[in-house]
Amino acid sequence: MSAPTTTPATATPSTKPVRQLGDRIFAGSATGAGVLILIVLAGVAVFLIAQAIPAFTASPAELPGGKSLTAYIGPLVFGTLLSALIALVIATPLAVCVALFITHYAPRRLAQGLGYVVDLLAAVPSIVYGLWGVAVLAPASLPFMTWLQDYLGWIPLFAGPVSATGRTMLVVGVTLAVMILPIITAVSREVFLQTPKLHEEAALALGATRWEMIRMAVLPFGRSGIISGAMLGLGRALGETMAVAIILSGSGIITFNLISSSNPSSIAANIALQFPDSTGVAVNTLIASGLVLFVITLLVNSIARWIINRRREFSGAN
């Protein structure tokens, strides 16, 4: 009876499969790089939490503004999310249209030129966009904002009164939209170009017009790419410092009024503006707001991943 129990042991020799040295080195360095990025991320998180704790434990009177931590960071979070949201709502549809034009409508030579221009725009530093926003867009948009107040003033977003300088939340949102447009366009364009010819032809052979073909084959295929691009853009808009700092003079209020002169600032802009003059607990408070931004970005990315994964089996990757 002992034979059956011993046979499997001899049948499965315990030698490991041979692995080439080059393969081992590559596997090791790739794992190392992966671990390193996790360590850096953990280090940042530890730093933020450690430095933010004094702000959490301090009494409200010690904090800048003299009220509670939530009262200080709340409007900043609101301003950050609102400006990024405006930017995303404006930029994403526009970017998808530009990418579709480049990949499916423009003549080949024009498409190539446009592609380069878009990539170039993505490389322009954000301070330049900020300057453009404050020097050109803000004054130029005054008549438009007045029009919004006159005709759409019943919507709380455009209640006014219109800021005399034009430096409003709406202008920030538009500036950020222009800033993130190239990133979303570039990512979407790459994905649209990857659409299998096979699927485009399947749609065309069924008698689809070009627009129907795009809706049937290109957009569903590029969906996860569009979301990834939008998240990259959103990340940039959330963390944008200079453009917001230059245009807005934040006043720590929460309002959906996009065209008035009193606006909430954003977390990043607030840190940049306040940090040089801060000491003690004020520094900790700023870092605490940075921690909040860190968490928001993580959340946004997780939600995007979740959206992409939800329809994974329909993604065309299998």
């Binding site: 096979l198 065309l204 052979a205 069924l206 008698g207 689809a208 569903p220 329909f314 299998n318």
Partner: peptide, 28 residues
Amino acid sequence: VGVRRQIGMVFQRPNPFPTMSIYENVIA
């Protein structure tokens, strides 16, 4: 477009729309 609606085509490699279900593919 009208011609292609009258004359159907089946390709060399099977190409159902990956983002659609079987049902949606048939009624595309």
